[in-house]
Design a protein around this nucleic acid. Structure first.
Length: 283
DNA sequence: ACCCGCACCTGTAAGC
DNA sequence: TGCTTACAGGTGCGGG
């Protein structure tokens, strides 16, 4: 599922193909996946892609005109490059597409696919709208988060730490999979109230978050057995081979061999090691 | 103000 | 074998 490492891998895989490239035409097949102005110009038709930015799980394409197209992959979203014309039929659930100007770079079409439609596109007039409106409700980006930014956000909530990590206004980029991985590596029980983490625990958690997300990006993200996640060139990730907690309920902990435990928390399947991540009694 | 719980959506897989 | 059911989860919102 696309969380920060997958979105960052998509960004990096698209960058050499898209930067400086002109969009000749934009196609919107399902207008209900779009928020904002649906005009061709807002969809970057006849624009030139100047930058690709990411905050948390959101990806922004920024045109030379200053216009911004935000892509949110949700659960099953994909941004895929393909040749055009292509001998293959258009993939199912292709909700939007962009024709790219012919230059020496071959793939000539970009598609947004999203079978479950939890994702979508947002058009914004400029970078100010992106920073001051669209991204202002998001917490610090998880890839570079430091304890001094995370500590006040955790102190403000009584929810379990796992629930707080899933809240994009607390921290941007972590979803169910990487929350379990980060808590495992930080040796913190997912049920521990967020506000009860001491300075040392918040520092450990930040280091674990940065480290696990960094390693996941180096592995190209996690492509689970459903094969849903692919980068911009259609390549699979391999970080699923390094998962320590996610999807390993009932299997031995890689550190202490105790059986990993699973229980729903914040309506999400949560896996942790009862020995390495003990519940700390709070005073 | 905070936060819980559910609806949204579809593909996959397990169960009968 | 073919149907039904459960499950996966990011986000937004109703309501407590």
């Amino acid at each position: 599922m696309p969380e920060l490492p997958e979105v960052e891998t998509v960004r990096r895989s698209l960058k050499p193909h898209l930067l400086g490239r002109r969009i000749t035409r934009a196609f919107l097949r399902r207008p209900d996946i779009l928020r904002g102005d649906a005009s061709p110009a807002a969809l970057l038709s006849r624009d030139r892609i100047e930058r690709l930015e990411r905050h948390g799980k959101q990806l922004a394409l920024i045109g030379a005109s200053g216009r911004v197209l935000v892509v949110h992959l949700g659960m099953s979203g994909q941004l895929l490059l393909s040749r055009h014309p292509s001998p293959d039929p258009e993939p199912s659930h292709t909700h939007a597409a962009w024709s790219l100007a012919t230059d020496h770079r071959p793939p000539a079409r970009l598609r947004f696919r999203d079978p479950r439609r939890f994702g979508g596109l947002t058009t914004l007039p400029d970078m100010d709208a992106l920073r001051l409106e669209h991204w202002s409700s998001l917490g610090p980006d998880a890839l570079t988060v430091r304890a001094d930014r995370l500590r006040p956000n955790l102190a403000a909530t009584r929810r379990p730490i796992k629930a707080a990590l899933l809240d994009q206004s607390v921290l941007a980029g972590v979803g169910n999979l990487y929350a379990d991985e980060a808590l495992f590596h930080a040796r913190i029980c997912p049920r521990q109230p967020a506000a009860s983490l001491n300075r040392e625990e918040v520092s450990r958690l930040c280091r674990a978050i940065r480290s696990v997300l960094g390693r996941a990006i180096r592995a190209g993200g996690s492509t689970l057995s459903d094969g849903m996640y692919l980068d911009g060139e259609g390549k699979r990730g391999s970080f699923q081979l390094q998962h320590a907690a996610y999807g390993r309920s009932g299997l031995p902990c890689g550190r202490c061999k105790a059986v990993l435990r699973s229980e729903p928390l914040a309506q999400r399947t949560t896996v942790w090691c009862p020995v390495c991540q003990p519940e700390r009694v709070d005073r």
